[in-house]
Design a protein around this nucleic acid. Structure first.
Lengths: 241, 241
DNA sequence: GCAAAAGTGTTGGAAATACACCCATGT
DNA sequence: ACATGGGTGTATTTCCAACACTTTTGC
């Protein structure tokens, strides 16, 4: 066993931080929305000279007195005013040169919002909903972070009921299916899709119908989170790779 | 939109780091092993006065010139000498008071090693393989980190072929099943288990047999990672929660 | 020859897939 | 009346779960 195996004591830690320099830590939020049957991401124009004109995720350095989750919520609140949303940590990114200002490690969070709840002014060219599949280049390593969060979302949405955060509280099954098709990039059989969701027994018929559609209006449902929590039995067991 | 919505420029970032203090960043490794049909974790005795006698994960502050992944590999190398292992990032932990010395955020990594490759001396009371289910209390928030990594492992092992890293290169199906049973905490039907693995067509018969067993010896297999990579077709699509 | 684990197939039920027609509404 | 998407059922296939006996080896 090498010599330096034991954990460091407080003094050693502080000395090392003093000597070798601290690292900066930031949180970056990938904010997904769903509109016009497309998956969108909320991006902000970068100020940094290195990335002039490029778009970046919403992020900020964390304060020493807030938790990581706390910082993520703060960023969303400060920049969009949105309070009620789904938010989850995805991954930390720590390439040495990922930020031009300093060595800054970032923790990526994924959040899902209903675009109705936050619409930047149309003339606001700093903060904007971008169609995911049109995004090619971004500031920093943000494209890489975005890709990781998108993959995370694709997987996650098949195993947990996140998708509803992207829809209005009342939605038609068509809207729900469009959402899944947009996120997964596949097309699904309508009858089997309905069967699947109805068999879960988590959608509640609101008794209302779509309005202003040029065809037979669909029923509107809402997702019963309460019932879901009750049911959240582990679904052991299935090795499959 | 609030006033401070735009991303900060380099100068502002450096000023903020200067003014509010940097944060420390560490990496902690949860090193799982498998021995005597039990899942084990490699822990080290904590030096810190606050946690005297408690056990902790293997971790260290990261250096400003290494990546997160790099730091994780370094820690494993420095403390155990193990080079060849499975390692993956699990989650960042950022409670404000999680470390008594300073505000230190940590990124947890999960790694899987074959215990044959690293056996601390029996009289070494600083570094030790602990049976997972006997661990109750730990230093820092390490119990919480360990729990998160264990849950991650349970899920991950059902979807990806990690388990083999915990076994000798050549193993019997019984060993493999014991491993899954230990990690998942369930007991499995032997015939279905075999069928499952053989149908994946990723195990190769080495032609060898177990030795020194007081019963009919089983065949030894090894896992063909190469074949797995080839096959790694996406298995779309299954909404299920 | 006995103890102990290896090895092996079949069957029934559940879930996933594929697929086509009638219905309600707006224009 | 017609265009558009809403709503529904069935047959087929695939996957999973349950289950018992014979074989090989060490002692």
């Amino acid at each position: 066993m090498p010599a330096n195996a034991r954990p460091k004591d407080v003094k050693t830690i502080l000395e090392q931080l003093e000597r070798e320099g601290y690292n900066g830590i930031s949180v970056d939020c990938v904010i997904f929305g769903f509109d016009e049957n497309e998956l969108k991401v909320l991006l902000i124009k970068s100020d940094l000279a290195n990335f002039e004109g490029k778009w970046s995720l919403l992020g900020d350095l964390i304060d020493s007195r807030e938790t990581l989750d706390g910082a993520a919520y703060r960023i969303l609140r400060e920049r969009t005013g949105i309070e009620d949303l789904y938010l989850e940590q995805v991954k930390a990114f720590g390439e040495v040169d990922r930020h031009p200002a300093a060595r800054i490690i970032t923790v990526a969070y994924c959040s899902l919002v209903n675009v109705q709840h936050y619409q930047p002014r149309t003339h606001d060219n700093e903060l904007h909903w971008h169609t995911l599949k049109h995004i090619t280049e971004m500031a920093f390593d943000h494209k890489q972070i975005l890709d990781a969060c998108y993959e995370w979302l694709q997987k996650r949405i098949q195993e947990h009921p996140l998708g509803f955060s992207l829809l209005p509280r009342k939605f038609s099954l068509r809207e729900l299916q469009n959402l899944y098709e947009a996120i997964l990039g596949v097309s699904l059989d309508r009858r089997n899709f309905r069967k699947k969701f109805f068999s879960m027994d988590l959608l509640e018929d609101t008794g209302e119908l779509e309005t202003n559609v040029p065809h037979r209006p669909g029923k509107l449902y809402h997702f019963n989170y309460e019932k879901y929590r009750m049911k959240e039995r582990k679904k052991w067991f299935g090795i499959d790779f």
